[in-house]
Design a protein around this nucleic acid. Structure first.
Lengths: 157, 157
DNA sequence: CGTGAAAAAATAGCGTT
DNA sequence: AACGCTATTTTTTCACG
């Protein structure tokens, strides 16, 4: 039984909020004056909007885009996870949360159940972290693709 | 012939720079006073360091971490790319640069040549964007895993 | 790199629609 | 409920030691 789910606006967003998000996606250190100009608002209104977007969770935080080569941890990998049984997303999240090398995790369509993006100091460290993922009761096997070189990185616009 | 490559410091970074990077990774909107406190520096010295990290490319930029559900573009996919022949990384970069739906691209170990992270409005839009990737002369075939739900996202610490 | 002064921005309060 | 305006505080910025 298919259900047409029309939920275009679950977080109560409008065009102004979108303009603000586009602005801070491009530059998270933009001033409220700049954000306001991008959204057609005064600086104080822009601040109130941005604070609200953070409070409601639409914006999770602000981070730097760092060249991995510049960091101590610069070994990256995409890891496909195949599960045993049918763990719920919540169970998987809980299991992966304690492994700090797992930076991002998503359930995906296709043969694999989940895709991880992992970051470690070096190959031995990565191998050990993948071992920890595997040792999770929920995980059957993994398939890793280690990043050799980064071709492209851009803000999500 | 294996070569032991000791290149611990390709970008001329020290512990202070690392502390600064850790700070702005956690919060890109931190003030120079906060960054300075994290690195044991005065605000003006912290600004000079941060400006230099951006100028040298160690920090590529600052962005917001946005809940994809809050955006108009909220269909994500990981796409494995298998190439024809042996294109250089530079050729691949050039080819993918014009496809705005490709947010990240890396060459990887394993069967696939590259891994893409793509972002589109919806499934039809994603399909069309993947078609553009495929139509690139360098690409033989692709294998996509569409993101169903996001389990985990954290700053790269 | 730190200091200190001047300029710019962030913040909080207030009146308006 | 959300905006713009204004006054105050904080931060940024830059020349100098």
């Amino acid at each position: 039984m298919a259900v047409i789910c029309t939920r275009p606006d679950p977080l109560g967003m409008d065009d102004i909020d979108e303009a603000i998000i586009r602005c801070v996606l491009r530059n998270a250190r933009a001033t409220y004056a700049q954000i306001g100009k991008a959204a057609g608002l005064s600086p104080s209104a822009a601040k109130r909007r941005l604070d609200r977007l953070v409070a409601t969770g639409a914006i999770r935080g602000f981070s730097a885009l760092v060249d991995p080569q510049a960091m101590a941890w610069h070994t990256e990998a995409f890891v496909e996870v195949y599960c045993t049984g049918n763990p719920t997303p919540a169970e998987l999240t809980k299991a992966l949360h304690d492994i700090p090398e797992v930076i991002e995790a998503c359930t995906v369509s296709g043969a694999a159940d989940a895709m991880l993006y992992m970051l470690a100091r070096d190959i031995p460290h990565l191998e050990q972290a993948i071992q920890r993922v595997r040792s999770t009761a929920l995980v059957d096997r993994t398939e890793s693709a280690i990043v050799l070189s980064r071709l492209l990185t851009r803000p999500r616009l």
